[in-house]
């Protein structure tokens, strides 16, 4: 997903000559092709995230379209007030890019886990929050941000995220991608962990179920998510996010369901509400959190019985 992001940024720069890439000293070798092709439009600001966001705001005020990149917690929590005041408060079209969604930096330790970024970004007025599930959605969403007239947060996997079926069509902000058609029961995932949801759905399908699987790549605004679920007469949903239980996809969907008076059972599979001080690989931490394919299949299978 990260490699797809950098290729997409190169495409975005070709599409819009005001695109400029900022990094807080991360992305070793990854943006070299971009820098070579776009001299002056690639800026490493050093390990200084607060200044990076301020500089991005200044550039945006002068008509540039900055993408500001770091590891998810550093790109969001470290410089939260700069994002709040200078990007959201001023309504500027800066895309904050946080790499390492969920446990992508698993064994690096809890400081690097991106498990609260969706909640932090969703809370900010005017912020569009994007969390693509695979390289194709990532590429499409990078281009889609160029049409926004306000700030966005783009949450990225670290790498090795598989290309998923269903993401080859048009990707629209606020409209979930159907990864697997189905009815009555659904897995709604955001981010690369959607691959686990899809694999879990196939396990359930082998038992005769027909689960719908969606990539909710836009976590704010959720847009047509409830409508898509209601259209398929879904009565039981399992939300899947590599993110803590607060402020993420599950809460967002519950809130929309309540306000739209859509009645369904909405279960949650997420990272736990705690720091993981005994870290492990991403796969191991997904299993530990119950957001791996087998756990998801078991959770939804149990609920529909």
């Amino acid at each position: 997903m990260r490699d797809a992001f950098f290729r997409a940024i190169e495409g975005a720069a070709r599409a819009d000559d005001r695109v400029i890439f900022l990094t807080a000293d991360l992305g070793y070798k990854l943006f070299d092709p971009f820098a070579a092709a776009n001299p002056g439009r690639c800026l490493n600001l050093g390990v200084a995230e607060a200044n990076m966001i301020g500089v991005a705001a200044g550039l945006a005020l002068e008509g540039f379209r900055p993408f500001a990149y770091s590891i998810a917690p550093f790109a969001t929590a470290r410089c939260l007030e700069q994002i709040r005041n200078s990007l959201c408060g001023m309504g500027l079209p800066v895309v904050v890019c946080g790499v390492g969604a969920g446990y992508a930096y698993g064994v690096n330790g809890a400081t690097h886990h991106g498990v609260d970024d969706l909640g932090l970004m969703r809370a900010l007025p005017g912020m569009t929050v994007l969390s693509p599930c695979d390289p194709r959605e990532t590429a499409a969403l990078v281009l889609a941000t160029l049409a926004l007239d306000g700030p966005a947060y783009l949450r990225l996997g670290r790498g090795r995220d598989p290309v998923l079926p269903g993401t080859d069509g048009p990707v629209t902000i606020g409209r979930p991608t159907v990864l697997r058609e189905g009815r009555e029961i659904a897995l709604v995932a955001t981010g690369g962990v959607a691959s686990e949801a899809l694999a879990g759905a196939e396990m359930l399908a082998r038992d005769g179920a027909d689960p719908l699987v969606l990539s909710a790549h836009t976590v704010k605004p959720l847009g047509s998510l409830v409508e898509v679920l209601a259209d398929r007469e879904v009565h039981t949903v399992l939300t899947v996010e590599e993110h803590g239980p607060y402020g993420g996809l599950h809460e967002a969907l519950c809130a929309d369901a309540m306000t739209e008076r859509w009645r369904a059972r909405i279960l949650r599979a997420s990272a736990p509400d705690r720091f993981v001080h005994d870290p492990a690989s991403q796969g191991a931490l997904r299993r530990r959190s119950g957001i791996d394919a087998a756990s998801l299949a078991a959770a939804l299978g149990e609920a529909r019985c």
């Binding site: 400029i20 002056g40 200044n51 301020g54 200044g58 550039l59 540039f64 005041n85 200078s86």
Partner: peptide, 22 residues
């Protein structure tokens, strides 16, 4: 630029000055 919380203006000014150079 709207300000109030301290320590924000100079970074934004840096971005504006860098943009003028570009």
């Amino acid at each position: 630029l709207s300000t109030g919380s301290l320590g924000h203006g100079l970074s934004v000014g840096c971005g504006m000055a860098y943009a003028a150079k570009l």
